[in-house]
């Protein structure tokens, strides 16, 4: 069994908004092209159909829901982080 991470200082707080169109363009650039976008009261839900993953984009939050596909989750995490400021 791998060693659990040491108790570290938490990651920085995030600020900003993930804009829909530039984010979709970034996904396309990374080969994620089958994206169904649904508008909601507070933002959008993106269904990445080939990856069976949902990304909920709202003004004050982003929620990534995926199967345990760690490499994909890390790619999506880093793409989201490109649009946010760290504090």
């Amino acid at each position: 069994v791998e060693e659990p991470p040491e108790l570290l200082a938490p990651k920085p707080l995030l600020s900003g908004v993930v804009p829909l169109e530039p984010f979709l363009a970034t996904l396309t650039k990374h080969g994620i092209t089958e994206v169904k976008v649904e508008d909601t009261a507070d933002g959008h839900i993106l269904h990445l159909q080939a990856e069976d993953t949902l990304i909920q984009l709202e003004e004050d939050g982003t929620h990534i829901v995926c199967d345990n596909n760690e490499p994909l989750r890390i790619v999506l995490r880093d793409l989201v982080l490109r649009f946010l400021q760290k504090l």
């Binding site: 600020s15 900003g16 993930v18 004050d60 939050g61 982003t62 929620h63 995926c66």
Partner: peptide, 16 residues
């Protein structure tokens, strides 16, 4: 964040 008038952006993950 408060003093700079910024709102926090919550990034969450749910994995199955």
């Amino acid at each position: 964040l408060k003093e700079l008038d910024l709102t926090e952006h919550q990034l969450r993950f749910t994995c199955r």
